[in-house]
Design a protein around this nucleic acid. Structure first.
Lengths: 146, 146
DNA sequence: TGTTAACAGTTGATTTTGTAACTAACAACG
DNA sequence: CGTTGTTAGTTACAAAATCAACTGTTAACA
């Protein structure tokens, strides 16, 4: 009954995805952690602002699917370190526009460079066709559309 | 500089993998959480024992790459709920063999069924060839071998 | 208007994780 | 033996994530 069960954990997609995600995040994590003392939520916010420009916490939440409390705390940390500035919307004073400072942009560019090189190193292990398939499937899985 | 940056977060593999892993874990998480009040570490330990049979915490750690403190706590929880028993090795009294109880096996079989159906549902969205490619690539990424 | 609901974002309490130090047991080698 | 090092597993404390309740604001509409 227990020995040689036919179910294979290594092929269970959610498990396999988690293992791959964790392993592939390790080295990048070392960089943003050691070099900037950031958490995962913080580099994600930094990247959203670096890539898409000025936006509100709500928009970051919609794009990243991170919970608003995580974003709120990450934003507070980044603001404290002078990596971003906040400006209230004049018309709707609930909204706050977030924008990277020059220091924030420098950190973003630095980490983006690391990310791109790391991504290339990962991709180099597979054929272009396989990588295209992988990315397409991961996007489909991430979008969750049944 | 910030608007229309050419780096695409959605194609950064570690990020994409995390998004896919999180999204694809959601529904299964609901089941083991709602039905058994388990955490991710707990169902993983349960599955390791269900699939491979009696083994020590150390072996679970080697197979799952989970840190030993996580395993220790998960084992304590599962033992408290009478899902597993612990027996000290007679020769080397540091080792403790873990084995599912009948209640533990019932929970495992129940969750395994859910996992298999869920995995099939996910796989049904893609061709067999693509799924084979995906699994092969994820295993390679998870193994971390450069 | 006035009242109620909805929304953006924050804070506090609780839970879970991560790190380091610890206990108990075995091993290696003088 | 006896000292030193290693190992399996636990515990204590700090860091972080989660969940619920909160503030301040806008919207809806009687």
């Amino acid at each position: 009954m227990s020995i040689a069960d036919d179910f294979d954990l290594q092929n269970f997609l959610p498990y396999l995805l988690n293992q791959a995600a964790e392993e592939s995040s390790l080295r990048f994590q070392q960089v943003y952690k050691d070099r900037y003392g950031m958490l995962r939520t913080e580099w994600r916010v930094l990247f959203h602002l670096g890539i898409y420009g000025k936006m509100t916490a709500k928009e970051i939440g919609e794009r990243s699917k991170m919970h608003k409390t995580k974003i709120s705390r990450a934003v507070a940390k980044l603001a404290e370190r002078r990596f971003l500035t906040r400006q209230r919307d004049g018309a709707d004073r609930r909204l706050e526009y977030l924008e990277l400072t020059e220091a924030g942009r420098r950190a973003y560019r630095d980490l983006r460079q690391v990310a791109m090189e790391y991504d290339s190193a990962l991709a180099a292990r597979f054929s272009d066709a396989d990588m295209a398939t992988l990315r397409r499937m991961l996007r489909a899985l991430a979008s969750g559309a049944a």
